[in-house]
Amino acid sequence: MEKRQYTQEEKKVLKSMFIRSHLTFLSFNMTKMEANGFTITMQPAIESIYGDDEEAKKEAYARHQNFFNTHAVPFAFIAGLAYAMEKEHKEKGSIDGQMIESIKAALMGPTAGMFDSMFFNCLRIIAAGIAIGLCSQGNFLGVPIFILLYGITQSIGKYIFLRLGYTYGTSFIDQIFSSGLMATLTKSASVLGLMMVGAMTATTVNVPLNWTINVGQTSVVVGDVVNSIFPGILSIGLLFLLMSLIKKGKRPVWLIAGIFAVAMLGALAGIF
């Protein structure tokens, strides 16, 4: 990738946009979601591009007040891209407002999915896994490590992707899509994610069976018998039972209530 020289004005706008891109969820609501955050992030760009042209400014603001929703990091990428497109729109007229809106809309879904799998399902799990490991032993260092690994990386990501969006414009997402690497990236990320989930299931999920059957003189501790088949086999069984219920569309709230009921009844019967 070639280095690109930014003008003084561009640098100023990009810096301001970077800081404002942290306000992604400002005044978040169910109808327009991140629209206000996007408008605020676009303000420096719009002010810089359109200057005194009040009519065009109004149009641009209305454009970016539309429904918007994606992950917080590609949010910056799309803002950078929108900056490039607005500039193109003003200077060359090759892109019209309609196109800016449709490109924004087209990018929301795929970028949200891609970054959710990278940040939320992979990086977060790694960061939390390390932090949980440290904190469960009473080591407070887990907290700064978690913020560093998962929070600061979001900011770095925003900084990089804002510039990337501005510089490489529309061709970027096209390239990843057409090269077919998107699926590969998601798959590799989920290998890591799944391994970490498996590891954490092993450390934290526990079916505390405390059930002893008395057969004449001898007593059988059921938990030990079950665990001798494979350690924690009940935990895995529970997890996959829950997974199949979720796949069938059961709401988590009902699963929580169900487990509560099972635990209570089990405790009453002396199983737990």
Binding site: N121, I125, G193, L194, V197, M200, T201, T204, V205, N206, V207, P208, S235, L238, L239, F240, L242, M243, L245, I246, P252, L255, I256, I259, F260, V262, A263, M264, G266, A267, F272
Partner: peptide, 15 residues
């Protein structure tokens, strides 16, 4: 027992 089994819900959603 409920608290140690409820953890599985989160992991099940994630998985």
């Amino acid at each position: 027992a409920a608290s140690s089994m409820m953890i599985a819900i989160g992991f099940a959603i994630l998985t």
